[in-house]
Design a protein around this nucleic acid. Structure first.
Lengths: 219, 219
DNA sequence: TTATTTAAATGAACACTGTTAATATTGGTT
DNA sequence: AACCAATATTAACAGTGTTCATTTAAATAA
């Protein structure tokens, strides 16, 4: 059975080669402007060979997007648990997750564009990608629910608050990523921080600032 | 010269016919999936005829986007001047403009998708469309500057505040428009209102609520 | 090792796409 | 009625995603 195993590895290897070539091309020239033939040429295979590994061109994009979403969720989860382990209070965790969201967008702006623009723009988005997106939102929603339960908020409905926070953080990230040459305020990191603080203040009131935050020098 | 005039009208008429057919198709099937031949068939002309009226397929999209931006700016300006004429204070105007932004997005979600997703997604966006977008932002920025001067804000930098408000309002609009079947909180209008109030509170503090607002029943 | 079976890579082809150049057709002016 | 300019159309090119029949390579059996 060893030869079958080896073959399995070979298949994965070729798949990876295709994905890598496609990623580079998609990012450079945009999904629509990349042809199967170009990808094939880049990996030095015949165009039809690709169809032995992926059902069609969309399947390649799908594979690529799934990778992006996995990375995205890893960012959010890492931020949440790290903040929790540090003993930060619930609002602190919320902040950390929001920051992680934009950090992902800025550090992997190509992925962000692909998964939050290219994917959204398609007629029929991939269901499992949609599910990953929902997972990201629910992570945020859980934190908000807990935070509202602990401290109360101006608007009582946690669902509404989650969606507002999501909107704000998605808004700044997508704008920063798509309008790279817009004259953004001095430092982008600071802009994001100010936005997050504005949201926290708007939702929980200024009482939401804790000694914990002060100690870490959060404005 | 009357025949030349008539011809001029005819040209505009055919252009309009092309744009209208293209609009419908682009909205239904997405820019990438619409072919010149399909547009031609819809208006019962030969495919090549279209090239007598538009340089290429992109030029059609361009024309369409310009229309969308014009409508968008009309929404913002109308809201601003209406709020000003009603004697509303500056924060009131700000609210009105933000609401107008989302109202445009919701009432013309197809346009919104085209101009705020399709356009952003292209490699090289049309400059004059970019300029229209900037105009929209600057309208907001002017109001913010004035509001900050009048009342002060938690964060002193008006530029930063403008960008935060822009991000929030763009965020909620694009999410509402792209995730039409997401389980949004009860009433979407109310969600938008709550988001706007959250922003105002976060930026100007709760002192920002005026008797004027109370009188009009704004929460 | 050789013969046979199985799996993978390919070349040719189809129905499309945007776009161009040459041709046919129309309408207005002498 | 004859001409001419403007407009519409047909034919064609290079390129696209994708399929199918065919060839090549690899794995197994004799």
């Amino acid at each position: 059975m060893s030869s079958a195993d080896r073959r399995q590895r070979e298949i994965e290897e070729i798949k990876k080669k295709i994905i890598d070539a496609a990623t580079e091309l998609f990012i450079d020239e945009g999904y629509a402007h990349v042809s199967i033939r170009k990808i094939a040429q880049k990996i030095e295979y015949s165009p039809t060979t690709i169809y032995n590994y992926f059902r069609d061109k969309e399947a390649i994009l799908h594979h690529l997007l799934k990778q992006g979403y996995a990375l995205f969720l890893r960012y959010l989860h890492a931020a949440e648990s790290e903040a929790a382990n540090r003993g930060g209070d619930i609002v602190h965790q919320l902040r950390a997750v929001m920051r992680a969201y934009t950090r992902f967008g800025l550090e992997h702006s190509d992925y962000y564009k692909l998964i939050f623009i290219e994917d959204l723009e398609r007629r029929q988005p991939f269901e499992d990608c949609e599910s990953d997106r929902r997972k990201g939102f629910q992570l945020l929603a859980r934190l908000v629910e807990q935070a509202v339960a602990e401290r109360g908020a101006h608007e009582a409905d946690p669902q509404q608050i989650s969606q507002i926070l999501w909107a704000a953080i998605h808004g700044i990230t997508s704008l920063l990523v798509t309008f790279d040459d817009f004259p953004w305020a001095d430092d982008r990191e600071r802009l994001v921080d100010t936005l997050i603080e504005t949201q926290i203040r708007g939702v929980f009131g200024s009482a939401a600032r804790t000694q914990n935050d002060e100690a870490e020098g959060i404005r």
